[in-house]
Nucleic acid binder design. Sequence first.
DNA 1: TTGTCTTATCGTATATTTGCGATATAAGAT
DNA 2: ATCTTATATCGCAAATATACGATAAGACAA
Lengths: 111, 111
Amino acid sequence: MAIHKKEEFTQKEQDLANFAKAMAHPARIAILKVLAQRNECICGEIVDLLPLAQSTVSQHLKELKNAGLVTGTVDGPRSCYCINWKAFEKFNSEFSFLFANLKLKNEKACC
Amino acid sequence: MAIHKKEEFTQKEQDLANFAKAMAHPARIAILKVLAQRNECICGEIVDLLPLAQSTVSQHLKELKNAGLVTGTVDGPRSCYCINWKAFEKFNSEFSFLFANLKLKNEKACC
DNA sequence: TTGTCTTATCGTATATTTGCGATATAAGAT
DNA sequence: ATCTTATATCGCAAATATACGATAAGACAA
Protein backbone atom coordinates (compact mmCIF):
# COMPACT_ATOMS: atom_id res chain seq x y z
CA MET A 1 0.00 0.00 0.00
CA ALA A 2 1.81 3.08 -1.17
CA ILE A 3 -0.29 5.60 0.74
CA HIS A 4 -3.48 5.14 2.59
CA LYS A 5 -6.28 7.31 1.51
CA LYS A 6 -8.51 7.13 4.50
CA GLU A 7 -8.13 10.81 5.17
CA GLU A 8 -9.66 11.63 1.82
CA PHE A 9 -13.09 10.65 3.07
CA THR A 10 -15.37 12.72 5.25
CA GLN A 11 -14.90 12.88 8.99
CA LYS A 12 -18.18 11.11 9.62
CA GLU A 13 -17.20 8.31 7.30
CA GLN A 14 -13.91 7.95 9.11
CA ASP A 15 -15.60 8.03 12.51
CA LEU A 16 -18.07 5.35 11.56
CA ALA A 17 -15.29 3.24 10.08
CA ASN A 18 -13.21 3.60 13.23
CA PHE A 19 -16.12 2.58 15.38
CA ALA A 20 -16.69 -0.45 13.18
CA LYS A 21 -13.02 -1.32 13.24
CA ALA A 22 -13.05 -1.38 17.01
CA MET A 23 -15.85 -3.94 16.85
CA ALA A 24 -14.26 -5.90 14.02
CA HIS A 25 -12.83 -8.67 16.13
CA PRO A 26 -14.72 -11.41 18.00
CA ALA A 27 -12.49 -10.97 21.04
CA ARG A 28 -13.55 -7.34 21.33
CA ILE A 29 -17.19 -8.27 20.83
CA ALA A 30 -16.80 -10.80 23.61
CA ILE A 31 -15.18 -8.23 25.88
CA LEU A 32 -17.99 -5.75 25.24
CA LYS A 33 -20.49 -8.50 25.98
CA VAL A 34 -18.91 -9.18 29.35
CA LEU A 35 -18.78 -5.49 30.18
CA ALA A 36 -22.37 -5.10 29.10
CA GLN A 37 -23.78 -8.03 31.00
CA ARG A 38 -22.53 -6.76 34.29
CA ASN A 39 -23.24 -3.11 34.31
CA GLU A 40 -20.28 -2.21 36.45
CA CYS A 41 -16.57 -1.90 36.43
CA ILE A 42 -14.69 -5.05 35.71
CA CYS A 43 -11.12 -5.37 36.68
CA GLY A 44 -9.56 -8.71 36.03
CA GLU A 45 -11.87 -11.57 35.11
CA ILE A 46 -11.93 -10.69 31.46
CA VAL A 47 -8.66 -12.48 30.87
CA ASP A 48 -10.04 -15.61 32.49
CA LEU A 49 -13.07 -15.58 30.23
CA LEU A 50 -11.22 -15.32 26.95
CA PRO A 51 -9.00 -17.87 25.20
CA LEU A 52 -6.22 -15.33 24.86
CA ALA A 53 -3.06 -14.37 26.68
CA GLN A 54 -3.17 -11.56 29.19
CA SER A 55 -1.10 -9.25 27.03
CA THR A 56 -3.40 -9.80 24.08
CA VAL A 57 -6.51 -9.03 26.08
CA SER A 58 -4.84 -5.91 27.42
CA GLN A 59 -4.14 -4.84 23.86
CA HIS A 60 -7.76 -5.37 22.79
CA LEU A 61 -8.91 -3.36 25.79
CA LYS A 62 -6.55 -0.60 24.80
CA GLU A 63 -8.04 -0.49 21.31
CA LEU A 64 -11.57 -0.35 22.68
CA LYS A 65 -10.46 2.45 24.96
CA ASN A 66 -8.76 4.34 22.14
CA ALA A 67 -11.89 4.05 20.07
CA GLY A 68 -13.84 5.49 22.98
CA LEU A 69 -16.09 2.46 23.39
CA VAL A 70 -15.00 1.76 26.92
CA THR A 71 -13.71 3.90 29.71
CA GLY A 72 -11.07 2.77 32.11
CA THR A 73 -9.54 3.96 35.31
CA VAL A 74 -6.52 2.69 37.14
CA ASP A 75 -7.46 1.71 40.64
CA GLY A 76 -4.39 0.76 42.50
CA PRO A 77 -2.79 -2.31 40.99
CA ARG A 78 -5.95 -3.04 39.05
CA SER A 79 -7.65 -1.45 36.14
CA CYS A 80 -11.32 -0.91 35.84
CA TYR A 81 -13.28 -0.95 32.62
CA CYS A 82 -16.84 -0.27 31.69
CA ILE A 83 -18.82 0.55 28.60
CA ASN A 84 -19.12 4.08 27.33
CA TRP A 85 -22.81 4.15 26.50
CA LYS A 86 -22.67 7.63 25.18
CA ALA A 87 -20.34 6.54 22.40
CA PHE A 88 -22.64 3.70 21.45
CA GLU A 89 -25.59 6.02 21.25
CA LYS A 90 -23.65 8.42 19.10
CA PHE A 91 -22.73 5.62 16.75
CA ASN A 92 -26.24 4.33 16.65
CA SER A 93 -27.66 7.67 15.68
CA GLU A 94 -25.04 8.35 13.04
CA PHE A 95 -25.58 4.92 11.66
CA SER A 96 -29.30 5.31 11.38
CA PHE A 97 -28.91 8.80 9.98
CA LEU A 98 -26.77 7.35 7.25
CA PHE A 99 -29.57 5.09 6.16
CA ALA A 100 -32.46 7.21 7.27
CA ASN A 101 -33.85 7.99 3.87
CA LEU A 102 -34.37 4.39 2.89
CA LYS A 103 -36.19 2.76 5.72
CA LEU A 104 -39.33 3.44 3.73
CA LYS A 105 -38.45 1.72 0.53
CA ASN A 106 -36.79 -1.02 2.44
CA GLU A 107 -38.23 -3.83 0.40
CA LYS A 108 -37.24 -2.62 -2.98
CA ALA A 109 -34.54 -5.18 -3.63
CA CYS A 110 -33.54 -4.77 -7.22
CA CYS A 111 -30.83 -7.37 -7.68
CA MET B 1 0.48 -14.06 14.88
CA ALA B 2 1.22 -17.74 15.12
CA ILE B 3 -2.38 -18.86 14.86
CA HIS B 4 -5.51 -16.82 14.78
CA LYS B 5 -7.99 -17.62 17.42
CA LYS B 6 -11.07 -16.10 15.93
CA GLU B 7 -12.71 -19.49 15.62
CA GLU B 8 -12.58 -19.95 19.37
CA PHE B 9 -15.35 -17.43 19.84
CA THR B 10 -19.06 -18.02 19.32
CA GLN B 11 -20.61 -17.90 15.90
CA LYS B 12 -22.61 -14.81 16.77
CA GLU B 13 -19.51 -13.03 17.95
CA GLN B 14 -17.77 -13.92 14.72
CA ASP B 15 -20.75 -12.84 12.63
CA LEU B 16 -20.97 -9.48 14.34
CA ALA B 17 -17.23 -8.98 14.00
CA ASN B 18 -17.37 -9.83 10.30
CA PHE B 19 -20.16 -7.38 9.75
CA ALA B 20 -18.20 -4.71 11.57
CA LYS B 21 -15.08 -5.53 9.62
CA ALA B 22 -16.93 -5.00 6.37
CA MET B 23 -17.84 -1.51 7.56
CA ALA B 24 -14.40 -0.79 8.97
CA HIS B 25 -13.16 1.31 6.10
CA PRO B 26 -14.33 4.78 5.08
CA ALA B 27 -14.33 3.79 1.42
CA ARG B 28 -16.84 1.05 2.12
CA ILE B 29 -18.94 3.39 4.24
CA ALA B 30 -18.92 5.82 1.32
CA ILE B 31 -19.91 3.08 -1.10
CA LEU B 32 -22.80 2.02 1.11
CA LYS B 33 -23.87 5.62 1.36
CA VAL B 34 -24.01 5.95 -2.41
CA LEU B 35 -25.92 2.70 -2.75
CA ALA B 36 -28.29 3.78 -0.02
CA GLN B 37 -29.03 7.23 -1.31
CA ARG B 38 -30.22 5.95 -4.62
CA ASN B 39 -32.32 2.98 -3.80
CA GLU B 40 -31.51 1.14 -6.97
CA CYS B 41 -28.83 -0.77 -8.74
CA ILE B 42 -25.71 1.15 -9.44
CA CYS B 43 -23.29 0.02 -12.05
CA GLY B 44 -20.39 2.28 -12.70
CA GLU B 45 -20.48 5.73 -11.13
CA ILE B 46 -19.12 4.52 -7.83
CA VAL B 47 -15.60 4.63 -9.14
CA ASP B 48 -16.09 8.23 -10.26
CA LEU B 49 -17.29 9.25 -6.82
CA LEU B 50 -14.39 7.83 -4.85
CA PRO B 51 -10.75 8.94 -4.73
CA LEU B 52 -9.58 5.42 -5.48
CA ALA B 53 -8.50 3.41 -8.49
CA GLN B 54 -11.04 1.24 -10.25
CA SER B 55 -9.38 -1.97 -9.11
CA THR B 56 -9.44 -0.83 -5.50
CA VAL B 57 -13.12 0.04 -5.62
CA SER B 58 -13.84 -3.32 -7.19
CA GLN B 59 -12.01 -4.97 -4.33
CA HIS B 60 -14.01 -3.08 -1.72
CA LEU B 61 -17.24 -4.02 -3.49
CA LYS B 62 -16.15 -7.63 -3.42
CA GLU B 63 -15.63 -7.47 0.32
CA LEU B 64 -19.02 -5.92 0.87
CA LYS B 65 -20.52 -8.63 -1.26
CA ASN B 66 -18.65 -11.39 0.58
CA ALA B 67 -19.89 -9.99 3.86
CA GLY B 68 -23.42 -10.10 2.46
CA LEU B 69 -24.01 -6.38 2.82
CA VAL B 70 -24.61 -5.79 -0.84
CA THR B 71 -25.93 -7.97 -3.61
CA GLY B 72 -24.62 -7.84 -7.12
CA THR B 73 -25.58 -9.19 -10.47
CA VAL B 74 -23.65 -9.17 -13.68
CA ASP B 75 -25.67 -7.46 -16.35
CA GLY B 76 -23.89 -7.74 -19.62
CA PRO B 77 -20.66 -5.82 -19.55
CA ARG B 78 -21.69 -4.06 -16.34
CA SER B 79 -22.20 -5.10 -12.79
CA CYS B 80 -25.05 -4.02 -10.67
CA TYR B 81 -24.92 -3.50 -6.94
CA CYS B 82 -27.45 -2.67 -4.33
CA ILE B 83 -27.79 -2.87 -0.57
CA ASN B 84 -28.93 -6.04 1.12
CA TRP B 85 -31.33 -4.58 3.65
CA LYS B 86 -32.08 -7.93 5.16
CA ALA B 87 -28.49 -8.29 6.27
CA PHE B 88 -28.53 -4.87 7.86
CA GLU B 89 -31.68 -5.68 9.76
CA LYS B 90 -30.19 -8.91 10.97
CA PHE B 91 -27.13 -7.08 12.22
CA ASN B 92 -29.21 -4.43 13.85
CA SER B 93 -31.25 -6.96 15.80
CA GLU B 94 -28.24 -8.97 16.89
CA PHE B 95 -26.50 -5.82 17.91
CA SER B 96 -29.36 -4.62 20.04
CA PHE B 97 -29.86 -8.10 21.48
CA LEU B 98 -26.26 -8.04 22.60
CA PHE B 99 -26.89 -4.94 24.63
CA ALA B 100 -30.54 -5.48 25.36
CA ASN B 101 -30.29 -5.96 29.08
CA LEU B 102 -28.65 -2.63 29.74
CA LYS B 103 -30.71 -0.06 28.02
CA LEU B 104 -32.39 0.45 31.36
CA LYS B 105 -29.39 1.21 33.48
CA ASN B 106 -27.87 3.14 30.70
CA GLU B 107 -26.78 6.02 32.84
CA LYS B 108 -24.86 4.11 35.40
CA ALA B 109 -21.41 5.15 34.35
CA CYS B 110 -19.07 3.92 36.99
CA CYS B 111 -15.67 4.99 35.73
C1' DT C 1 -12.90 -10.40 -36.58
C1' DT C 2 -11.33 -6.37 -34.36
C1' DG C 3 -11.84 -2.59 -31.38
C1' DT C 4 -14.07 -0.47 -27.35
C1' DC C 5 -15.98 -0.19 -22.94
C1' DT C 6 -16.77 -1.93 -18.25
C1' DT C 7 -15.62 -4.65 -14.46
C1' DA C 8 -12.93 -8.44 -12.22
C1' DT C 9 -8.73 -10.53 -11.05
C1' DC C 10 -3.67 -11.03 -10.56
C1' DG C 11 0.71 -9.68 -8.86
C1' DT C 12 3.12 -6.95 -5.88
C1' DA C 13 4.51 -3.45 -2.39
C1' DT C 14 3.60 -1.57 1.90
C1' DA C 15 0.89 -0.87 6.19
C1' DT C 16 -1.69 -2.60 9.84
C1' DT C 17 -3.46 -6.15 12.91
C1' DT C 18 -3.06 -10.04 15.81
C1' DG C 19 -0.80 -12.70 19.16
C1' DC C 20 2.51 -14.05 22.54
C1' DG C 21 6.43 -14.11 25.75
C1' DA C 22 9.26 -11.20 28.30
C1' DT C 23 9.63 -7.35 30.87
C1' DA C 24 8.18 -3.12 33.28
C1' DT C 25 5.23 -0.79 36.55
C1' DA C 26 2.61 -0.02 40.56
C1' DA C 27 0.26 -1.09 44.80
C1' DG C 28 -0.32 -3.93 48.71
C1' DA C 29 1.28 -7.70 51.76
C1' DT C 30 4.86 -9.93 54.57
C1' DA D 1 13.06 -3.95 51.60
C1' DT D 2 11.24 -7.90 49.26
C1' DC D 3 7.61 -10.66 47.40
C1' DT D 4 3.26 -11.14 45.24
C1' DT D 5 -0.43 -9.84 42.26
C1' DA D 6 -2.51 -7.34 38.45
C1' DT D 7 -2.02 -4.89 34.42
C1' DA D 8 0.50 -2.41 30.73
C1' DT D 9 4.03 -2.12 27.39
C1' DC D 10 7.86 -3.74 24.35
C1' DG D 11 9.68 -6.47 20.72
C1' DC D 12 9.05 -9.65 17.50
C1' DA D 13 6.77 -12.98 14.04
C1' DA D 14 3.08 -14.06 11.17
C1' DA D 15 -1.31 -12.96 9.00
C1' DT D 16 -4.39 -9.54 6.78
C1' DA D 17 -5.69 -5.43 4.67
C1' DT D 18 -5.00 -1.65 1.44
C1' DA D 19 -3.78 0.17 -2.90
C1' DC D 20 -2.45 0.29 -7.59
C1' DG D 21 -1.04 -0.92 -12.34
C1' DA D 22 -1.39 -4.45 -15.58
C1' DT D 23 -4.03 -7.74 -17.53
C1' DA D 24 -8.07 -10.77 -18.37
C1' DA D 25 -12.90 -11.52 -19.42
C1' DG D 26 -17.24 -10.46 -21.35
C1' DA D 27 -20.59 -8.03 -24.10
C1' DC D 28 -21.50 -5.09 -27.74
C1' DA D 29 -20.49 -2.22 -32.03
C1' DA D 30 -18.36 -1.51 -36.40
